[in-house]
Simulated assay, not measured.
Amino acid sequence: MKSWFYTIEMTLLIMVGLRFVSGMIELTVAGLILKFNSVEKAIALNAMLAIIGPTILVTSIAIGLVGMKDQLSISKIVFIASGVILILIGIRK
């Protein structure tokens, strides 16, 4: 009998792992904010999350694109990359 784990693509597992780590970081920071009970420290911790979130997003998308390289034409990859860049520009201050 084959396990379901072996039917999942490695690229997908890496992307899921990144999102899991990102979620755990978010939950840890939420706990720290409650523990410190300080608006100043909450702002500092949120600022760190503002760096981590987009980094995880771009890394996850890049890994996904590498995993799909055989299925995508170069023009589609350019359009997707442009979309990611526009998202990052849109969320800037």
Rank of each mutant, 00 (worst) to 15 (best):
S22M: 13
S22A: 15
S22W: 13
S22E: 15
G23P: 01
G23R: 01
M24T: 03
M24R: 03
I25A: 13
I25C: 09
I25H: 07
E26C: 09
E26L: 12
E26T: 12
L27W: 06
L27G: 09
L27A: 13
L27Q: 04
T28D: 08
V29Y: 15
V29A: 03
A30M: 08
G31H: 09
G31N: 02
L32C: 07
L32N: 01
I33R: 14
L34G: 11
L34S: 00
L34A: 01
L34C: 01
F36L: 12
F36H: 06
F36D: 10
N37Q: 14
N37W: 03
S38Y: 02
S38F: 02
V39C: 12
E40R: 14
E40L: 11
E40S: 14
A42I: 05
I43N: 05
I43W: 08
I43D: 06
A44L: 15
N46V: 00
N46F: 05
A47D: 12
M48Y: 10
M48K: 04
M48D: 01
M48C: 07
L49K: 08
A50F: 06
A50I: 01
A50R: 05
I51N: 03
I51T: 04
G53W: 11
G53M: 10
P54D: 01
T55C: 07
T55P: 04
T55L: 04
I56M: 05
I56D: 01
I56S: 00
L57D: 15
L57T: 07
L57V: 14
V58F: 12
V58L: 14
V58N: 07
V58Y: 04
T59Q: 11
S60N: 12
S60P: 00
S60G: 11
I61L: 13
I61D: 05
A62I: 01
I63N: 13
I63M: 11
I63F: 15
I63H: 05
G64H: 10
G64Y: 08
L65M: 03
L65D: 04
L65P: 00
L65N: 02
M68W: 14
K69T: 13
K69I: 14
D70V: 03
S73K: 09
S73L: 00
I74S: 12
I74W: 07
S75L: 12
S75T: 14
I77L: 05
I77K: 03
I77W: 05
V78I: 05
V78L: 13
F79H: 07
I80P: 09
I80E: 07
I80L: 13
A81S: 12
A81G: 03
S82G: 06
S82K: 00
G83V: 10
G83R: 02
I85V: 15
I87F: 12
I87A: 12
